[in-house]
Nucleic acid binder design. Structure first.
Lengths: 149, 149
DNA sequence: AGCAATACTGATATCAACATGAGAAACTCG
DNA sequence: CGAGTTTCTCATGTTGATATCAGTATTGCT
């Protein structure tokens, strides 16, 4: 459901956010601490740094450090770097005209589902994750009881 | 976010559910109507049929038809056939003991996020999609206003 | 029995994500 | 200026999902 690359990025950002000191950590340290392949993590960090979430300094005592505050980093912002949000180019029902401007019923309902899936990524920040704080879970069992008979 | 295979399966089921007559449709008809590759759709339909959601009859005038009512088919049931739900084998924060029984704070929050993403898949049925009906969207802006300053 | 239509099965090709390795660029120190 | 440390970049290998093809099994009809 979430690519491993985006998962690596999340772990790295989470690790950086968990230490308050502005001291930079090397790519290898991050890889070892998060249990990810060293060379690959270096590439992932590079991509994240390009987006502006983290900053990198080269040379001795160099490494990576958080560029903005954890409360500003939503999960969606991290995942969007690698996993592009899905778009349904063709209508879910085969026939009939159905574009984005005038989606068919199924298309409309589907967009709502994907939107609901995306909501917690947009509302949850890295700071929330560190504090164990959690986005409000949607109340269930409202549609659950409809399809019993 | 959702594999193309699962997407194909959803379209096929949606197409079958959209016609009330119990007449079977051939694999090729389904593929053409949904705009998916013929040979691949045949294989996907085969897998869906094995799970019991649809039934298949061979020979002339054969094809596929819905095995159970659309209101009984949740989206999660279709997607789980191909996209296995993600599990986080390693803790999100590198160090410290953290298993599934006693998850760390970050782990706990993460599980809540993934759970919230999965909720609409479990509560929405194929019948809902056909009717344009939609799962209740989680109330937002409760965590949204926290990270402004 | 034999033919045609259809679902099924396995082997194979294709492609993108994942991962590795080596070397170049950049920075800090003596 | 030179040496050491670290990020950065490119080329290559590996894996799994995606897609195709050819062949087999099953059923209905004549």
């Amino acid at each position: 459901m979430v690519s491993s690359t985006a998962d690596y990025a999340l772990r790295a950002v989470l690790l950086l956010a968990s230490r308050d000191d502005a001291q930079a950590i090397t790519s290898n340290e991050i890889a070892d601490a998060t249990g990810t392949p060293r060379n690959y993590m270096a590439k992932v960090l590079n991509a994240v740094a390009k987006s502006g979430l983290i900053s990198s300094t080269r040379g001795p005592a160099g490494g990576f450090s958080l560029a903005i505050r954890p409360s500003e980093i939503t999960l969606g912002r991290i995942f969007d770097l690698f996993d592009s949000p899905p778009h349904h180019p063709r209508c879910l029902l085969g026939s009939g005209p159905c574009d984005l401007a005038r989606p068919c019923r199924a298309h409309k309902a589907w967009m709502s589902v994907t939107g609901a899936q995306r909501a917690p990524l947009l509302s949850t920040t890295v700071a929330d994750l560190l504090d164990g704080r959690v986005a409000p879970s949607p109340r269930k069992s409202s549609t659950e009881s409809r399809h019993v008979a």
